[in-house]
Write a protein that binds this DNA or RNA. Structure first.
Lengths: 240, 240
DNA sequence: CGCAACATTGAACGGTATCAAGTATGGTGG
DNA sequence: CCACCATACTTGATACCGTTCAATGTTGCG
């Protein structure tokens, strides 16, 4: 089932059915990791391309004072740390936010594939460019948005990306992050996250409870978040 | 002279002499733009790859409330907005911080080059990955560093990158940013930038005056900035 | 049932923005 | 050579947003 997610998301990167199938064929069986597990550490050589099959993962950097900064979130179907693959060494740590399962393509096999099928390299290059637009959007949020808009934006982004994997019913979707996860991700205190969520609830923008998110009026939330899904590229598109 | 900067920096991306020369040959003559000029606007199709030959440029996104957020800085030799090239459309605006001059390679010619010489595409892909590490570092700064460390970090980054273009004598180098430029880039008020710079001066870390930066003890500044130049990749390496 | 994780609340502190002047510095026309 | 102006830089007072510390409530699970 989650192997299908891998194929679907590769196809959505613009790969032909053959190329996507070739990549899936090169991938190892799924491996499960518990919540908070660390997949790779900052500075390690990257010997494989990792694809997230289930759960939520994050890329982060640790900082002397003040713990760590989340740099990217990954939902099922996402390729994790393409940058580490192309540079040969990861500049970020990868951790599991929830329990996850991943599949990997060894470097040698992927390099051969890229060499034989230039479209594969091109698709990965583009995927990295989209990762970059997401990072830019986060920097805009961190630098120029109120915590209120940032929270709204995070909720929009996560729910949009999760919906694209097919994990939604109507205007409800699972929301796997706890308040402390969000605090960690946005660099806010858990206390403040709690208060901002209450504001969002009071404004009628969200209904978040027990891992389930309901957005009564998506247009209103989008407005408050200054959210424009175009930066998500292929990730913003629903699965047919 | 600045055409040499282009060749040098292409070589530093890992391109062979032939590939670098081919790219230089494909590039248009330099075009000059005044300070504050806008090279491309958010959302425009990207029909060429742009290389900065002189001056300082920035990529930024405009935000409803609160002006704009700088997402990248470019110094001579840098390729501007590779992401826009690969995605076909720029998601950021490019502006001149100081007067600049640029040279461009039309999309069609570059696509042909990438097709014929896979190493060219690979080098651009890697260059984009390094852009990504810089962006990550900025997000870390924005999210987890004090304005004091952020300022110190910006100064380290800019001076390191400028030095790599050969624009330094001993521990002095030109520093082309005004205090309001820095405020704009870091998302601080000019007032606060001024105060933080005074702290840095008082601590004996920098000597900044009239567009010239002196760093009495680089190790001290690096320490205060939590600056580790490894994230700059090839940009951090001095020209031999 | 009891524990652990998650969520909520209040009070006080601090960093940074904002507003509002004031002080160099350098270039330009008379 | 000087008066003038624009740009860059500096300074002080005040307000607000988000943190920190310290509890307290709530939920779900073994």
């Amino acid at each position: 089932m989650s192997h299908d997610i891998m194929l679907t998301s590769l196809r959505r990167l613009g790969l032909s059915p053959d190329d996507a199938a070739a990549m899936r064929a090169a991938a190892s069986p799924e491996r499960a990791l518990p919540k908070a597990a660390c997949l790779t550490d900052e500075g390690e050589p990257t010997e494989a391309l990792t694809i997230l099959c289930s759960g939520v993962a994050q890329a982060y950097r640790t900082v002397r004072r003040g713990g760590r900064q989340t740099l990217a979130l990954f939902v099922p179907g996402d390729i994790v740390d393409i940058q580490g693959f192309i540079l040969g060494r990861s500049h970020v740590s990868i951790g599991a936010v929830t329990p996850i399962s991943v599949s990997q393509i060894p470097r040698a096999r992927l390099e051969r594939l890229i060499n034989d099928q230039p479209a594969v390299g091109r698709a990965l290059w583009q995927a990295m460019a989209w990762d970059n637009t997401v990072l830019q959007e986060w920097l805009v949020g961190s630098g120029r948005r109120t915590s209120y808009a940032q929270m709204a934006h995070l909720i929009c982004e996560i729910s949009t990306r999760l919906k694209a994997t097919g994990a939604a019913r109507g205007n409800r979707c699972p929301f796997p992050l706890t308040q402390s996860d969000m605090a960690d991700i946005l660099g806010l205190s858990t206390v403040h996250v709690n208060r901002v969520l209450q504001q969002l609830r009071a404004a009628g923008l969200i209904n978040l409870r027990g891992g389930q998110l309901e957005v009564p009026d998506p247009a209103l939330l989008t407005e408050a978040a200054e959210f424009n899904p175009s930066y998500l590229g292929v990730r913003g598109q629903e699965i047919a």
